[in-house]
Every structure is written in C-alpha cells, then in structure tokens.
Write a protein that binds this DNA or RNA. Structure first.
Lengths: 146, 146
DNA sequence: TCTAGATAGTTCGCATGCGAACTAATTGCA
DNA sequence: TGCAATTAGTTCGCATGCGAACTATCTAGA
C-alpha cells in the first residue's frame, strides 16, 4: 500500500511470453515444430496414447485449443489419432516416427532455451520466478470463480 | 551444471500469460476492452496522437500487430486515426470519448490485477520477477541476432 | 429398459500477432 | 533535379487459443 511504482507486470509478462514465442517460432523453421506443438510432443513422449482431453489438461488448453492443435499436428504427420476402443467419443494420440524425431530435436532445443532463460539468475531467484509463475494458475483460475 | 530439475519455465511462462489473458478477456465483457486494447489505451493516455509505429514500439508489436489492433479499436470507436499532416505515409492515433471512458475503466481494473499479481510476494521477490521478465527482452531479441 | 444428464470432441467466429510481400511516401545523394 | 534506398503502414496466410453452441456417445437412475 506504499506508493511504490508498480512494475507493469501485465505488460512485462505479455511481452516476455511473446518474445519467447517469437524466438521459438523462428527456431521452428529448422525442425518445423512450434512451441505449442512441442508441448504436445513432450506429453506424448511421456505418455503415448493419452486422450485428447488429458493432453489438453496437461497443457492447460480447453477443448477447442487441443482440438485445433491436434488437427494441425496430424496434418503435419507428427501425431496420429486413433479411436479409443472403449469409448466411442474419445480419441487417443500417438507419436508418428516423424513426431519422435521432432521430439528429440525439441528436447535438444529446450536445453538451449532453458539455459537462456536462467542465465544470470541464481537458483534461488529462478525458484522465486517459478513460484510466481505457478501461483498465477491459482490467482487466475479457469472457469467461474470469485 | 548440477543435474537439478529445471522448472519448466517455458511452460510456466506460457500458461501464466494465457491465464492472465483469459482472465482479463473475461473481464472485458464488462467494459468491452481486452488486454491488448487497454495497452494501446494506456499509451494514448500518456501521449495522445502518437504515430502507429511509435505505439507499436511501445507495445512491442510489429507493424502487422499494431495495424490490426488499430483496425479493431477503430471499428470499436475507441480510437480515431488521422493522417499526419507532415508525413503522407503516417497516421496519428487519438482517443475517442468512448476510448477515454474505457481507459478510465482499464486503469481501475489494472489496480485489481496488479494486486492479484503481487499478492503474497514481497517487494524484493516481485523485483526479481520483474527483472527476470524484463531480461527476456534482451535474451530473446527481435530481428536477427546471435 | 428408457431417458435425462454428463462427457469427449468439433465447429464457428473472433482476437491476437507473426513473417513475407506489398504500396506509397519520403529522403539522401550523386 | 532525379532516382535509389529507406520508411510507414497494409495485406495475406498462418498459428494460437478463447467462448458459445453443437454432435455423438456414455452413464445413472426411475
């Protein structure tokens, strides 16, 4: 409540995310995989064959978001969609060979990005940042809340 | 170089920004102004009559970004675009009365958002966060760099 | 068994913003 | 003066992801 000048966190957060997005998109020309797409690749790398909804939840995407992402990645032959044998409404997602290759490249790229993201900051500082970013998921929840 | 588990900063940053975006978009139903749009309103509140390019630079938007934003806000009658008398290529942006009203509401809303963004964190911690976010603009520069 | 409600995804229209390619106006310089 | 290079914006196609409304399937209870 002191009159200290608030850093413009909304602006900083928006710009930071956009910069990262842009930078990774430029990298995408190399392996053809964007940030959002590599997110799904990572999920499938851990649990191949997840339901679309599960993948969406893991990526914090709503139904339209995961649906569109899956469409684009299916077209790009990075993943494959197969009907769930037990539930006629559901689809399970699987990596294609091209998807596995892209995942390997994405993993390598992530190392560089993470290095760039943490360079010049101590572990304690990065922990503060991570804790703050994580806390926003509680402060700005999905759905209808107070 | 220790094998400590990296927090997934790319993911956290992406999700945090999306959560904030989503939350502010939901607020937008009230005053009809989104986060990106209120960004431009704030710029014009400080310097009414800026050039589009100047506004874009202030918001870290490229030419297509600011062009589209201006189009949408002009259609929504929040801003007005007038030819620069000295430069036939350039346009200057001005708040409309509706834009001024929306700006006042956006300012009020920002107070709440900022409170939510900083709640539970010390000033020193917020400073670390702000410094980290700001540093990304250098780490992930626009244009072609190393 | 039948049906009402819940659940999994899809589709539509929209906002956001990028890169590439473009138009039009201005400027620098030979 | 005149033209080449620069600069201000626009346009196009794309990726991303939202909310609202929809379809199809499944499940639980009367």
């Amino acid at each position: 409540m002191s009159p200290r000048r608030e850093p413009r966190l909304v602006f900083l957060l928006t710009v930071a995310q956009r910069r990262l997005q842009r930078w990774m998109a430029a990298r995408a020309q190399a392996n053809g995989v964007t940030a959002a797409q590599s997110g799904l690749l990572f999920i499938l790398g851990q649990r191949d064959g997840v339901l679309m909804g599960e993948a969406g939840a893991a990526l914090d995407l709503g139904p339209p978001g995961i649906s569109g992402l899956v469409d684009r990645m299916t077209t790009a032959d990075l993943i494959k969609r197969r009907a769930d044998p037990d539930d006629g409404r559901a689809w399970r997602l699987w990596l294609t060979p091209a998807g596995r290759t892209a995942l390997a490249q994405a993993k390598a790229g992530l190392v560089e990005v993470n290095a760039r993201l943490t360079e010049g900051f101590s572990e304690a500082e990065i922990d503060v940042v991570a804790r703050w970013l994580t806390s926003l998921q509680t402060r700005f929840p999905r759905g209808e809340d107070q």
